[in-house]
Amino acid sequence: MTEPTALDTKPFLYVVVCASGVAPDVGTLITAAQKADWNVGVIATPQALGFIDTRAIEAQTGYPIRSAWRTPGQPRPLPPADAIAVAPATFNTINKWAAGISDTLALGILCEAYGLGIPTVALPYVNSAQAAHPAYRQSLDRLRDMGVLIGSYDPHRPKAGGGAERFRWEEALELLASATGGVDRNR
């Protein structure tokens, strides 16, 4: 039996990334998490794969990006999650997640996280027209009732792009620290 490495003893953060205009900057969150002593693996929605630099993220994390279900017998490419950050969390993902829809790997992981008691945060990135929809507000309420911590992003104007300069990637770590008391090095 070999001695665990530093990589083995750090807590593991899943970053679930959704397709949106800020998704290409997910490396900002990965860097901040690694500086805060987390190991990180990325779970991307299928559409998010077209928004992110998969090679750069895999090089940064040291793990493959997961986007599709494993087949029986395939090894698990990531360790179990100690926490999950959904960033950016889109209108579609928030509503499906709150409704218990599990039609992608990312949603399946998020739906299971509740039952497993995994601390989870979501940083929504939506426009004001989407945020005005009653289903969105109800979904946020349901996620909060499930214990999900929701970031403070103020929706941007529709069709204006924008808002990226106000998207606080580090807020995911701040919320996780408040939920977990910081990184648990004795897991």
Rank of each mutant, 00 (worst) to 15 (best):
V26Y: 06
K35S: 13
T71P: 00
P64K: 13
Y114E: 12
N39Y: 04
G27R: 10
G161S: 03
E58M: 14
G21V: 08
I150R: 09
Y136M: 06
P124F: 09
L105M: 12
F51D: 04
L13G: 07
G100H: 11
I30E: 03
P64C: 05
L7C: 05
D53R: 12
Q34Y: 08
I57G: 05
L149C: 07
R187L: 15
D141C: 01
T5P: 00
V15C: 10
E58C: 12
E174V: 07
A177H: 12
F167G: 05
P72V: 03
P72M: 07
A44H: 08
S102G: 05
I109H: 06
R144V: 06
K96Q: 14
A164G: 10
G181P: 00
N127P: 04
G27W: 04
P134C: 00
D82G: 02
L13N: 08
Q47W: 12
I94P: 00
P158V: 13
L107H: 08
A56I: 01
A131S: 14
W69C: 06
G21N: 12
R157W: 09
S139N: 07
A36L: 05
W69N: 11
Q60T: 05
D145Q: 15
S128K: 15
N95V: 01
T90L: 11
A19F: 07
A160S: 15
T71R: 15
Y153T: 00
T54R: 15
A106Y: 06
A122E: 00
D8Y: 04
T2E: 14
S67R: 07
D145K: 15
W38N: 02
I52E: 02
L49G: 12
R55W: 08
P79W: 10
M1Q: 05
E58H: 11
L49E: 13
V16N: 08
V126K: 12
S67Q: 03
F91K: 09
A6T: 12
A6P: 01
R166A: 14
V17E: 04
I101T: 11
P4M: 13
Y114L: 13
T61L: 10
F12D: 01
E170S: 15
I43K: 05
A89D: 03
I118A: 07
D37W: 11
C111H: 03
I43H: 00
V42K: 02
Y14N: 03
R144C: 07
L13H: 09
G163Y: 06
D8Q: 13
L143M: 07
A85Q: 01
I94T: 09
E112V: 00
V16E: 02
G151D: 01
E165C: 01
G117V: 02
I57F: 10
A81P: 08
W38T: 00
Q130T: 04
T31C: 03
S152F: 08
G108H: 04
E3W: 11
R70P: 00
P80R: 14
L110M: 06
M1T: 06
L116W: 14
V126D: 06
